[in-house]
């Protein structure tokens, strides 16, 4: 693939997706151009909408990184959703009164707790793969449902807020552990900056460290990596820990930055959307930032469009899915040239 195509393909794919999505939009009875205009206004129209978009992008950056890091090493972590909830659970565990201190201590503590919990959540599938060759797609995916039920159990039991009027929700995060807001009176919080920093760290680690070298080698050709003396299992375990930690941070960021307490509907599928983000980003950590912003824009914009135009907000899912398909098709065209010709006469 030529270098320019790394930029051109996502852009063209995004535009093609909007073009194709106009068809169902027309069927839904909305005028297409005003609908899209409303969508753009819903994203960039005001400080509020812009910060909302960035807020929406924040968990996607973390889960996108989780998928991108794992996929680079050909470790298919489909369990970002579950790791996100584990991270959130750990954040409310340490962040709701177990200990207290100044923010300078408490914030790193909840972040670390969430990262560790997310990493532990992926360690099981990783060990099952390296020890027994169990397919991590299956194990990490199914673990999502187990973890979600576990979280629900905790929210009905030990983590239930006695002041919560009987709702299954955790106690609120202490003020000292909450991620500060970035813009006055807006929901955008420091988790966004942490996400951006995490993406740059992930990029630097993959490109400039021995650890990243090993991860890339294992991903590109595990047989040759093993032949060259690289511990393939150890590398995969390390990658799984890093990937799970990123997904765990997504949970911390949502709980400690946005919601303030944990419920079992914390994530509308950020873990799965992270996979889409990573694929749109071509598995590049820096690209994950851009892809998260794109996906978040579509979601926020489609929300606004559906309110204004009276069409279903499911159109957002449609546009994102369409973009992914266009992106994959674009990648295909960048690699192969299609030749049409008649079959030769017999």
């Amino acid at each position: 693939m030529r270098p320019w195509s790394a930029i051109l393909i996502p852009v063209v794919a995004g535009l093609a997706a909007l073009l194709l999505s106009a068809i169902p939009l027309a069927f839904a009875g909305a005028p297409i151009l005003p609908a899209y205009a409303q969508m753009v206004a819903g994203v960039f129209g005001s400080v509020f909408t812009a910060t909302e978009t960035l807020t929406r992008a924040t968990p996607l950056i973390f889960t996108g990184l989780a998928a991108a890091i794992a996929f680079r090493a050909r470790f298919w972590n489909i369990g970002g959703e579950g790791q996100l909830y584990l991270g959130a659970l750990a954040a409310v565990w340490v962040g709701t009164g177990m200990i207290d201190g100044p923010p300078i201590l408490m914030i790193p503590l909840v972040l670390a707790a969430g990262a560790v919990a997310g990493a532990v959540g992926l360690l099981g599938p990783a060990l099952l793969k390296t020890r027994f060759g169990a397919d991590e797609v299956v194990t990490s995916l199914l673990l999502n449902f187990i973890i979600l039920i576990f979280v629900q159990m905790m929210l009905e039991g030990p983590f239930k807020d006695p002041m919560g009027l009987g709702w299954p929700q955790s106690e609120p995060i202490l003020d000292s552990a909450a991620l500060p807001a970035l813009v006055d009176r807006m929901r955008l919080h420091a988790g966004f900056l942490i996400g951006i920093a995490a993406a740059f760290v992930a990029h630097a680690v993959l490109a400039y460290t021995v650890w990243g070298f090993r991860a890339r080698a294992v991903g590109d050709n595990a047989t040759a990596a093993r032949h060259a003396g690289i511990g393939v299992r150890r590398t995969i375990l390390g990658v799984a820990i890093a990937s799970g930690a990123c997904a765990g941070l997504a949970g911390v960021s949502e709980v400690a930055g946005l919601k303030g307490y944990l419920t079992s509907d914390l994530s509308p599928g950020f873990g799965y959307a992270g996979i889409v983000v990573a694929m749109l980003a071509g598995l590049s950590p820096i690209g994950v930032i851009a892809a998260s912003l794109f996906v978040a824009s579509v979601f926020v914009g489609a929300d606004s469009m559906s309110r204004a135009m009276g069409v279903s907000s499911f159109l957002a899912d449609l546009i994102v899915s369409m973009s992914l398909i266009c992106m994959l098709v674009g990648g295909f065209f960048a690699r192969f040239r299609l030749r049409l010709r008649a079959a030769p006469a017999p």
């Binding site: 070298f213 890339r216 080698a217 590109d220 050709n221 047989t223 040759a224 990596a225 032949h227």
Partner: peptide, 12 residues
């Protein structure tokens, strides 16, 4: 299969 990681650089 065993000798090189084709997607990595010559130096790597």
């Amino acid at each position: 299969q065993d000798g090189i990681v084709a997607d990595m650089s010559v130096a790597e």
